[in-house]
C-alpha cells in the first residue's frame, strides 16, 4: 500500500517537474532575461566579495607595543607562545619571557599549570642570562602543577641584563584534551644587582587547547 502511494507521489512530482519544464519552454524569453540578470549580478558580486581585507592583528606576546595596547604594562612576565593548540598526547614547548625589563640580575619565577591536563616533561634554561655568564640556575618541578625557577648572577661585578629575553623553556605533554592555562604566581620576583626588587607590572597567561 505504501509502495503504491509512493509511486503516485513520484508520478505527481514528475508531472510537476514536467509542467515546470513546459512553463519554462513557454516563457523561454523571460527565463533568458532572468538568466542574464542573474549572470550580471553574480559577476558584480564576485568582483565585490572576492577582495576581502583581513583585520589587522598583532598579538605576539613579545611585542611591547601590542602588550601595552592590550592593557599589559611592562616590565612583565609572559609566555611565548601564549596560545597553543595541540593534539592530546603531543608535546609542546612554552618559553618564559621577561618583557622590557631593566638591569635584572636575579629572578624567582613561580608558574602554575593544570597537572590533570598537562604533564611536565623537562625544563631548559633560557638565553637571557646564559648569554653573559653561567648563572646559578635551579628549578623545582614536583609535577604538582607548580614550577619554581631561581636564577641569579653572583660575583663582584654587578652583571645584569635588560630588554626582553627568556628565562627558561618548559616542555609539556598534553595528557588530556581540553582547555587549560599556564599562569604566573604574583609572588614572582625580579631583582637588580643590589638585590633591589624590580616591580613586575604585568603577568601574561598561556592558554593550551588540547584536542
Amino acid at each position: 500500500m505504501n509502495i503504491f502511494f509512493h509511486k503516485i507521489k513520484q508520478r505527481k512530482v514528475l508531472q510537476t517537474f514536467l509542467s515546470v519544464l513546459q512553463q519554462g519552454k513557454q516563457t523561454g524569453q523571460s527565463r533568458y532575461k532572468r538568466g542574464n540578470i542573474i549572470f550580471v549580478l553574480i559577476s558584480f558580486l564576485w568582483i565585490f566579495l572576492s577582495c576581502e581585507v583581513p583585520m589587522e592583528s598583532y598579538d605576539n606576546p613579545l611585542d611591547e607595543e601590542a602588550a601595552e595596547e592590550g592593557g599589559m604594562e611592562t616590565p612583565a612576565l609572559v609566555f611565548f607562545p601564549d596560545e597553543i593548540n595541540v593534539n592530546s598526547g603531543e608535546t609542546f614547548t612554552v618559553s618564559v619571557y621577561a618583557l622590557n625589563v631593566e638591569d635584572v640580575a636575579g629572578a624567582y619565577i613561580n608558574i602554575n599549570y593544570d597537572r590533570n591536563k598537562l604533564l611536565l616533561m623537562t625544563v631548559n634554561p633560557g638565553t637571557f642570562f646564559s648569554d653573559l655568564q653561567d648563572p646559578i640556575y635551579f628549578t623545582e618541578t614536583e609535577n604538582s602543577g607548580k614550577i619554581e625557577l631561581y636564577t641569579v648572577f653572583l660575583g663582584a661585578d654587578s652583571t645584569s641584563v635588560s630588554g626582553t629575553g627568556s628565562f627558561m623553556s618548559i616542555v609539556f605533554s598534553a595528557s588530556a584534551s581540553g582547555l587549560s592555562t599556564i599562569t604566573y604566581n604574583t609572588n614572582c620576583e625580579l631583582v637588580d644587582a643590589d638585590d633591589n626588587p624590580i616591580e613586575i607590572k604585568g603577568f601574561g597567561e598561556g592558554v593550551v587547547n588540547a584536542q
Partner: peptide
Amino acid sequence: YTNETDPALIAQYKAQS
C-alpha cells in the same frame, strides 16, 4: 611576526606587515 622572538625583528616584521 607571530613566530619571531627577537624584539627588533618583531618590530620590523610588524612594520612591514
